[in-house]
């Protein structure tokens, strides 16, 4: 059995780990609330934009010749892997990295062999996870997660849209964790470009005046909806990250509490054993003197 002092040091060290994990849990909980608020604030805009687009596509078919909707033969693929900058959040980052690789290997294996599949990494962890594997990596702006606003994410979305229209990439896919609730993240694979316009006609037909023209509005709105889609993916991933970290830290704190309980028991047993030993020695010493 380990000595008393050894057990005591272990208890202290587990205890301080527990304090750290429980503090991290609190921090994540606070950040999660903020991230969730951002999603809620963005939602009305996204829903409305979608509605207007729906109304428009009722009235026009011009969506199909939009430069962002061109279906080209897939020769150059870009996979955008959205992860976090920091670790300690369970399988959050590993899932995205695995998924990004499996998409490349399963769907585009021949292109991958020719080196025509590129990865754009957002967040330090996806870069760390994918580097050193002989893949075409482009490192994105990791500082974007420091403060997620629409203005800050727009240039990046525009860059991707530009890469598509100039023909640098024929298909762009986003891989990220969608936020469902604090404990559940849904690993999502989403085609960003070419844009998929929902041509399902809605039943409500309002007789709108379109200014200046339907086609012009369509042309203006599609880039907007793409930027929103990109922004939403980042917001979702950010909220999911904090949710995942909160859950992971909660489990770590629970484990530490359990471990401390066990160590305490060991410690008390060892202490009792040494006391019993001492008494035995004294008694047997006294016996010896008597004799």
């Amino acid at each position: 059995m380990a000595s008393l002092k050894e057990i005591r040091t272990r208890i202290t060290s587990v205890n301080s780990t527990k304090q750290i994990t429980s503090a991290m849990k609190m921090v994540s909980a606070a950040k999660l609330r903020k991230a969730q608020d951002a999603i809620v604030r963005m939602r009305p805009y996204a829903i409305k934009l979608h509605e207007i687009l729906g109304n428009l596509s009722n009235a026009t078919d011009s969506a199909l010749d939009n430069p962002y909707a061109v279906q080209r033969e897939a020769k150059n693929i870009l996979i955008v892997a959205i992860t976090s900058n920091k670790g300690l959040c369970g399988a959050f980052n590993a899932n995205v990295i695995k998924k990004a690789q499996s998409i490349a290997a399963e769907k585009y294996s021949d292109l991958l062999a020719k080196g025509k599949v590129s990865f754009l990494t957002l967040g330090k962890k996806s870069y760390d996870g994918l580097k050193g594997k002989g893949l075409n990596l482009i490192q994105g702006n990791n500082a974007i997660f420091d403060k997620l606003t629409f203005e800050r994410t727009t240039p990046l979305a525009e860059e991707l849209m530009n890469d598509f229209t100039t023909g640098k990439f024929d298909t762009i896919i986003l891989v990220y964790n969608e936020f469902k609730n604090a404990a559940v993240q849904i690993l999502t694979e989403e085609q960003f470009l070419p844009v998929q316009i929902n041509t399902g006609k809605s039943k409500i037909v309002n007789d709108y005046i379109f200014e200046p023209t339907k086609d012009y509005i369509m042309k203006e709105l599609i880039p907007k909806s793409l930027k929103i889609q990109f922004y939403k993916a980042l917001l979702d991933s950010n909220a999911a990250e904090h949710g995942a970290r909160m859950t992971a830290m909660h489990k770590a704190t629970d484990n530490a509490t359990e471990l401390i309980k066990e160590l305490r028991l060991h410690y008390n047993k060892a202490r009792q054993a040494s006391i019993t030993n001492e008494i035995l020695e004294i008694v047997s010493g006294a016996e010896a003197l008597k004799g």
Partner: peptide, 10 residues
Amino acid sequence: LNNHAPIIST
């Protein structure tokens, strides 16, 4: 103004 006809404009 009030009671404007339905319109969508950029």
